[in-house]
Design a protein around this nucleic acid. Sequence first.
DNA 1: TAGATTGTTAATCGATTAACAATC
DNA 2: TAGATTGTTAATCGATTAACAATC
Lengths: 215, 215
Amino acid sequence: MEEKEISQAVIGRLPRYFRYLGDLKDEGVERISSQELSELMKVTASQIRQDFNNFGGFGQQGYGYNVEFLYNEIGRILGLDQTHHFIIIGAGNLGQALGNYLNFERRGFIFSGIFDKNPELVGKDVRGIKVQPMENMEQFVRENDIDIAVLTIPKASALEVSERLVQYGIKAFWNFAHVDLPVPEGIQVENVHLSDSLMKLSYNISRYKKEREEK
Amino acid sequence: MEEKEISQAVIGRLPRYFRYLGDLKDEGVERISSQELSELMKVTASQIRQDFNNFGGFGQQGYGYNVEFLYNEIGRILGLDQTHHFIIIGAGNLGQALGNYLNFERRGFIFSGIFDKNPELVGKDVRGIKVQPMENMEQFVRENDIDIAVLTIPKASALEVSERLVQYGIKAFWNFAHVDLPVPEGIQVENVHLSDSLMKLSYNISRYKKEREEK
DNA sequence: TAGATTGTTAATCGATTAACAATC
DNA sequence: TAGATTGTTAATCGATTAACAATC
């Protein structure tokens, strides 16, 4: 079966392709060449062709790529044809914001539950779903076929909570807590470390300022 | 002066070093070798030494690195010794959540204003700061030495708003809108595309599932 | 001094870009 | 058929890892 592993560099670019192709599709564009797409996206045409060919040929010589077909294929590769139920752990500002965000539903991610240890938040309504106490978590995960846990809790509790969730059968974490989760093999983790992102911005501001001062 | 450009791959790892060193410092650890740090962080000791040496020698042969010194140096490299004032454009769930997040202040990022075009949100209090109408934006940016704009608005308006902000003197964007901002040279952009991140997670879930089925 | 560990050069690996034959 | 553009191989570039001399 020998399927070659796709590098995370390629995977990381797929959502951006998907976004551009979706926009093109909405604009009614039917076909596009790697050359045209490269100008639009500011990447090399060579990279685009290499990336797509990781998954087999999606184009046609002399024609280019059919926008809608390519869009659908990339969506399928990304697993967006599947449905995933997720719960949010931590009903603070960020947890509530993510629960309220509707666009995830469009991509097959279904907001199914939200939990918090703070009794004052328990019972609060987040887009039609009531915040539950942490004690309900195990039963809820086991009974509702939950794949993904979104962690919007402080780093201090993230490790312990993630371990419990693995036991209950969670397959993936979308981790906003500012720690690295040491999960077992086969459990997926995608980190969103907001402060790391802000620090990178900070570095680039400082660096540019320094460059200008040196001139 | 010939200062070599540091690759973004290295920059991207600095916040993680910073986090680990901060934890070590808090635990009272005084010194650490690249070998020990590599085991902790699950990266090679070689990479750690190469990364640090981009900025000059921080260690000492036979001793290792002084934790506190290294922590401070990396903080300085990241520009965390500077103070930056930021405003949030878009006072929806995510905008409010970011405004309420206190940890950014610790790193020198000062929440200074929040704006929304929705009159129902105008006047609302977010951590002691009232949501202002978009019309106030220009004057506020010009008068309050604002460096960073955090964009938590829909993609439809992000382009137009970012162009205006550049005119008003904004130097950097922390962009949560799901578009690429075509900013002029010298303006920094750090993107946080949440749905891209979720799609990567989706891919990895699907891929792992497929792998298991093939066995 | 001897041992430890960095700083740095060299080797390897992987990702990106270029080139072009295949083919629609 | 001729022109266009992919799919794919080869060349280049950059990042990571290994090795080891320098040095604390």
